[in-house]
């Protein structure tokens, strides 16, 4: 999937996250989370998994997480990517 424009998905509510996506020449992932120390690694793994599933290889993706569970990360990342397509 190609990322053609800027887009975002999600909210700042607890247990949710906001995902910002914009076009880029390579893949850049930035993650900020209220549970960074304990779950930062799992959040990043999940973001990468969605990027791979949707075959996104070039984009800048910024995640601002408020303690979301994996299913929500999955859904918000996909929603942002599809909106940017």
């Amino acid at each position: 999937m190609r990322i053609n424009k800027k887009a975002q998905a999600g909210t700042m509510q607890s247990s949710d996250l906001i995902v910002f996506v914009e076009p880029a020449d390579d893949l850049a992932i930035e993650i900020e989370s209220t549970v960074q120390q304990q779950f930062g690694h799992l959040i990043e793994a999940r973001v990468k998994q969605v990027l791979k599933r949707l075959s996104v290889e070039q984009c800048r993706i910024m995640v601002s997480d408020r303690g979301a569970l994996d299913y929500a990360i999955d859904a918000r990342v996909e929603a942002a990517l599809r909106r940017a397509n």
């Binding site: 304990q38 779950f39 930062g40 690694h41 569970l69």
Partner: peptide
């Protein structure tokens, strides 16, 4: 099972 296992604080 819901949250994943947390990484310990250092």
């Amino acid at each position: 099972g819901i949250t994943g296992a947390p990484r310990p604080i250092e």
